[in-house]
Simulated assay, not measured.
Amino acid sequence: MTNLLLGNFTPQTDAHDLKSRLQWGQPAFTIVDVRTRQSYNQGHISGAIPLPVDELVKRATTTLAKERDIYIYGDSDEQSASAAKTLRDAGFSRVSELTGGFSAWKAAGGSTEEV
């Protein structure tokens, strides 16, 4: 079992771990895509919500509980890390960066959608 299945929540998450959590049907988490709307529309993780970086804190604060498990990904690990730090600084305590982002998710065989 992975760390996520055992209940440990880490600042970075591997695509395979997140995929396992989805497959096990674990509740109470949100996947956030911080890329541009255009990138999101071209393809994103199934079920991910678009919260572009420039709207991130404002929209997250009004739509997500601060203690909710949040997995965040962007165009790069640097963008994901920056967005995760922004959320943590805004009081969100359980934020994890999806290492490798959308491309790592696709490589792991994760489910995707296009708008």
Rank of each mutant, 00 (worst) to 15 (best):
A28N: 14
Q42W: 15
T99A: 13
A48R: 02
D89L: 08
R68D: 11
V53S: 07
N8A: 08
Y40T: 06
T30P: 03
D17R: 05
T86C: 10
P50E: 05
V95E: 09
L56W: 06
E55I: 04
D54L: 08
Q26Y: 15
A107D: 00
S46R: 06
P50V: 04
Y40W: 15
A108C: 01
I49E: 01
A28P: 01
G101Q: 03
K19F: 02
Y40H: 15
L4M: 06
S93Y: 06
A90I: 02
A28G: 13
S111N: 01
S20N: 04
T99S: 13
Y73K: 09
Q79L: 15
G109H: 00
T10P: 05
D33G: 09
T62Y: 00
S96Q: 04
K58P: 00
T99M: 13
Q38K: 12
A15L: 11
T13K: 11
K85D: 14
A81C: 08
T62N: 02
S96E: 05
F29H: 14
G43L: 11
T30S: 14
Q12M: 12
A60K: 00
L64N: 02
G101L: 07
S103Y: 02
A81K: 10
F92S: 08
F9W: 07
N41T: 12
E67V: 10
H16D: 14
Q26G: 08
D54H: 11
S39D: 14
A65M: 09
P27K: 09
A83S: 15
Y40K: 05
G110S: 00
W105G: 01
E97K: 11
I70V: 13
V53L: 12
L6I: 03
A28F: 11
A15M: 10
L98I: 14
L22T: 03
L56G: 06
S96D: 05
R94H: 15
E78G: 12
W24H: 13
W105M: 02
R37P: 07
I31C: 07
E114K: 04
G74R: 10
V95I: 14
P50F: 03
I45Y: 09
P52Q: 15
F9N: 04
S103Q: 04
G74Y: 13
A108S: 03
D33K: 04
A83D: 07
G43M: 10
A90L: 02
K66F: 05
F9G: 08
L22M: 11
A108P: 01
T2I: 05
S39K: 10
Y40E: 08
D77R: 12
D75A: 15
